[in-house]
């Protein structure tokens, strides 16, 4: 999964410390959390391996280069079991 971080002016933000969190739609289930690696031009990538089928909320969390905390919802995914 890749996410792109931009500032208020639309400029890409590099050097942020981010991770991608996938939280199950049902509370109380173990999350999938992976660090997001900077790819340049504000792009960050992480490989997520979902542990079960169902609906997942994907969030980007961490800190921006200026120290500000970020916790942003990124996607809502429906993961289906492989047949």
């Amino acid at each position: 999964m890749t996410v792109t971080v931009r500032d208020a002016a639309g400029q890409p933000v590099d050097a942020a410390t981010l991770e991608i969190q996938a939280l199950m739609a049902h509370p109380g289930m173990a999350p999938v959390i992976e660090p997001a690696q900077g790819q340049g031009h504000g792009v960050y990538a992480a490989h997520l391996q979902f542990t079960m089928a169902g609906d997942w909320d994907v969030l980007v969390t961490g800190r921006l280069p200026d120290g500000r905390r970020v916790r942003q919802r990124a996607a809502h995914l429906s993961v289906h079991a492989a047949d």
């Binding site: 739609a25 049902h26 079960m52 089928a53 169902g54 609906d55 809502h76 289906h80």
Partner: peptide, 11 residues
């Protein structure tokens, strides 16, 4: 059976 927990979520 394998679990599959659906939910409307924020979407």
């Amino acid at each position: 059976q394998p679990m599959e927990m659906r939910g409307v979520g924020f979407g």
